[in-house]
């Protein structure tokens, strides 16, 4: 099999030491794409490289999202001033090892990345009114020590259940470890009824951590406004639909809903938010 990594570098970044933040497009609540997009927008990220898709993505047609034809993209951006590299990509469907090594080749050889952070979302059975939590999985004891000063859940025990597979982030963290790059996989649990919608609170949670850790000095006033609006929309949904209010009340009291009730809550919230709340 070919060992050539299909990387295109448009402009060589001038970085002595940097950190890499990665987000995948197919993430729940679009968290990876939204958070990395936010970093690029706020920190004026400049695209400088990409990974060619043909070895990694099915190119048997195009996907349509939001009325638009899409094409798999795997792009690198640099925020020079902050010694930050951002990688945005769809999850590859094949040749994962080669793909992830390509990412790390760019990171290591062109950007001198010393630490990487992946962004991911997971389902929470809690209510949206509870503060978002941030979970971290690291690939070295040293990194765990470094993170001890931050507001993170760092003592997760987990083993892939039968019939499931590890996440791409776990695979990346493992390869990074083999290459002596410190890595952190960040996970924000998102209320299940917001899983297909955007969750500004979850974005703020992960971005605040990165802001503090990487000293980015981001002004979050726009994201705070989005959070307020989202909370107001959800409050309106509760007052318009007593059933929704009842379900969320029960979640707030740490009660578990039935499968049918979960489904009804998801549908009501999704419909309401899609109609503009």
């Amino acid at each position: 099999m070919s060992q050539e990594y299909p990387i295109k570098i448009y402009k060589e970044p001038d970085l002595r030491r940097s950190s890499l933040v990665l987000g995948w497009s197919e993430d729940m609540s679009n968290l990876g794409r939204k958070a990395t997009g936010y970093l690029n927008r706020k920190l004026k990220g400049q695209e400088f490289a990409e990974i060619e898709p043909e070895d990694f993505f099915s190119l048997g047609g195009v996907a349509i999202e939001g009325n638009l034809a899409q094409f798999p993209e795997s792009k690198f951006y640099t925020c020079q001033e902050h010694a930050l590299v951002v990688f945005q990509s769809g999850s590859p469907g094949a040749e994962w090892y080669k793909f992830l090594n390509s990412v790390l080749d760019v990171a290591e050889h062109h950007c001198r990345v010393k630490e990487l952070y992946t962004i991911g979302a997971m389902v929470s059975v809690g209510a949206h009114t509870a503060p978002r939590e941030l979970l971290a999985v690291v690939n070295s004891a040293e990194m765990k020590e470094v993170l001890s000063q931050y507001d993170l859940t760092r003592d997760l025990d987990y083993q892939t259940p039968p019939g499931e597979r590890p996440t791409l982030n776990a695979f990346l963290l493992w390869i990074a470890k083999e290459r002596n790059i410190h890595g952190v996989s960040l996970w924000v649990p998102i209320p299940f009824y917001l899983a297909t919608m955007e969750d500004a609170q979850a974005q703020k949670k992960v971005l605040s951590f990165l802001d503090e850790r990487l000293d980015l000095k981001i002004d979050f006033s726009d994201l705070d406004r989005e959070i307020r609006e989202q909370n107001e929309q959800l409050a309106r949904a509760r007052s318009r639909f007593p059933q929704v209010d009842d379900y969320i009340n029960r979640l707030e009291s740490n009660l578990v809903l039935s499968e049918e009730e979960n489904g009804e809550l998801i549908k009501k919230i999704e419909d309401f938010l899609r109609e503009g709340g």
Binding site: L156, T160, R165, A170, W174, S185
Partner: peptide, 20 residues
Amino acid sequence: PWDFFYPRRVLIKKGVLEHL
């Protein structure tokens, strides 16, 4: 295995990825 397979199990202990 790495070039042929996607990993089948991850083991995380106290927040540290121990084994893939």
